[in-house]
Design a binder for these strands. Structure first.
Lengths: 203, 203, 203, 203
DNA sequence: CTATAATCGAGACGGTACGTCTCGTCTTTAC
DNA sequence: GTAAAGACGAGACGTACCGTCTCGATTATAG
């Protein structure tokens, strides 16, 4: 997939930064976002994005291979901003805050709809699944792991904990409720954190 | 949605009140199933189903409102057969077996792919979400609740347990791993059951 | 190419004339004709024809392989109506009238523009050239030959005449003037007929 | 249109007033020519010419307004070289040779294809028609008229002859056969010359 | 034992969006 | 100021499916 444009990344000093319109890039991302919120995933079409962004279709195809790649770009920018790993002294407390943010993100934020839509699309298209994992899930998981690893290092969490299993045990129920449109009360998250972090695993 | 066909319900001995070709119905369900497995969700089209089933498009539209309705019909038939609620004397043991079956179903069975695809599609289309909940998730949840309620009644499980929360805490991580294409080892399920059923909640 | 629809040809008695919309067919032909006159050949697009005819693009592609095939259909219908071979007792007189009609057709009639456009397009596309010859030029040439052959049979024209050469010697200059946008006065045609039919060839 | 480039006119010794790359100009003309021969008129695109000539698109647009202007430039150079007006003592004999050359040019030479293509394109685009007439047809016609006028002056041809009509009567049939892909045997041209030049018109 | 009526396979129809192609313009960097 | 490079807005291309519609043909009750 695309999105990782070579040019933007090396900043303004580059000696030949002479192409790709940043204005067009942003117009496309915003148009895609808006359309998803207003009309749902089925209402997001390349044609529609182009029209609303005031951009030629070819400009979209030049930089993104598909509409999901565009949505993935918007998700990554939004999640980086709205779902930072909290830096608290207690790993348990960090996790609690993080997963509460995630609940709010998934159920309240427009960007949360993007994430659910991408998970949905990943079920239909292995290429989407691959890129979604690679560009969103994996990097985020690395940061989440670190959060818990800090707790293990400080002795706050048992050293016998299986970090990935614990993260899935936290992430899974929250996502499941979001996917099925159920509500996610604060105490549901609290209970998950208590059960999965505050005590050593039984086996 | 459809699926609730008038004729099938009163069984095969029926005095054949009127019409509907059972052959066509089965051909459609099988064609849809096959196409999903062979070509993925995007490869399932009404046109393709009709062609492969040797059936007219109109025949499909007469009985199903959309391709997801067809897939939902196949899922319900398959899940009823392959995901029964175990009838063991211990609720914990029933749950363990049930969620192990679910893991296998989601990761190994073709019908599991159908379920993941429908959850995916539900993220894009509220009507699909509604019907999926109504015709699949809710009835199944009723049976699952009963399974745990039996354990509470017998004293095996704490009476303070929040049954829906516990079911989501079990279901969620399994589904999450299936949705992200991760492996689901037996011991992952065992740990979930242990943590969420064998001990009272902390709060 | 298309146009020669199997259904229309065998008349009203046909036992299963249950498809292809004559209304759509006519709407397409008229839309194409109108666009050519209003906006020139470059202004004729399948998309434009479909929009103006109130017809789906696919309906056009179902029955015609290209826009020139559509124009050829309109030309054939128009030429059959407006350029009949005159049935006079004198072949010379018939030819004179016929080529005067042709001059008027090419310089004044909308359908004449269609013919010039097709000759033009035939220079760019061998397939167009082939079909244009096959479906328009050749049948018409057969009728024209007959017209002169009658004159030879009756003794009005020399039996040494090379009929195809004579027809080209008449047709060519008229078409050349039409192609270059020159005027074609009646006396230019008269002179051509006199020179090429009223006297025996020199060699 | 273009083609009348400022620099070329004062020859190769030129003190090189400023810019314009002669190499680029030739590369463009040759690329256009080659593409027309290899892929037909539809295969000639500005983009394709630029790519094959190793030239930027903008360089083409700077000097030519359209692809037909490029082709017209190649035609003019080629026709000047390959279709000179013969300088024989007899106007009839000059005409015979000239129109035989024309036949060969149109049916055998690549440049003849260019001419047919331009006549074709002139049917679609009035601007092309205008420039083609102005830069190719009219100058050439002036020379052709002179050829016959010499014959009239010397008494070889009747003074009653309508020179333009005669030239069209010669040109037209040859072009018509070329346009329709028919063969043009030498004796067809001979007969045309005999009929239209060696004897006085009937009316 | 019809005849009536819903079903069926077939496929044309008006549409929408796809992803590709080329257009002619514009902008950047190098010479 | 010209050139190579190539991104940009624009819009037509031909294809794939959508969901609706008509068309005989088939078939099983209901009269």
């Amino acid at each position: 997939m695309a999105g990782a444009d070579p040019e933007r990344s090396h900043g303004p000093k580059g000696r030949a930064p002479h192409r790709r319109s940043e204005a067009a890039r942003l117009a496309v991302l915003h148009a895609a976002d808006d359309l998803l919120v207003e009309r749902g995933f089925g209402g997001v079409t390349i044609e529609g994005i182009a029209a609303r962004a005031g951009v030629a279709k070819q400009t979209i195809y030049r930089w993104w291979p598909s509409k999901t790649a565009i949505l993935l770009d918007t998700l990554i920018e939004d999640a980086d901003r709205e779902l930072p790993i909290p830096q608290s002294s207690s790993a348990t407390e960090s996790a609690r805050r993080y997963f509460l943010s995630l609940s709010r993100f998934l159920t309240k934020e427009p960007a949360g709809k993007v994430m659910l839509a991408l998970i949905g699309e990943a079920q239909h298209d292995p290429e989407v699944a691959r890129t979604f994992r690679q560009r969103y899930l994996d990097p985020r998981r690395r940061a989440e792991r670190e959060m818990l690893a800090d707790g293990v290092a400080s002795g706050e969490l048992s050293s016998e904990i299986d970090i990935d299993a614990a993260l899935d045990a936290l992430q899974g129920p929250i996502l499941y409720r979001a996917l099925t449109g159920a509500r996610i009360p604060r105490r549901f998250v609290d209970a998950l954190v208590d059960r999965n972090l505050t005590r050593a695993p039984a086996r």
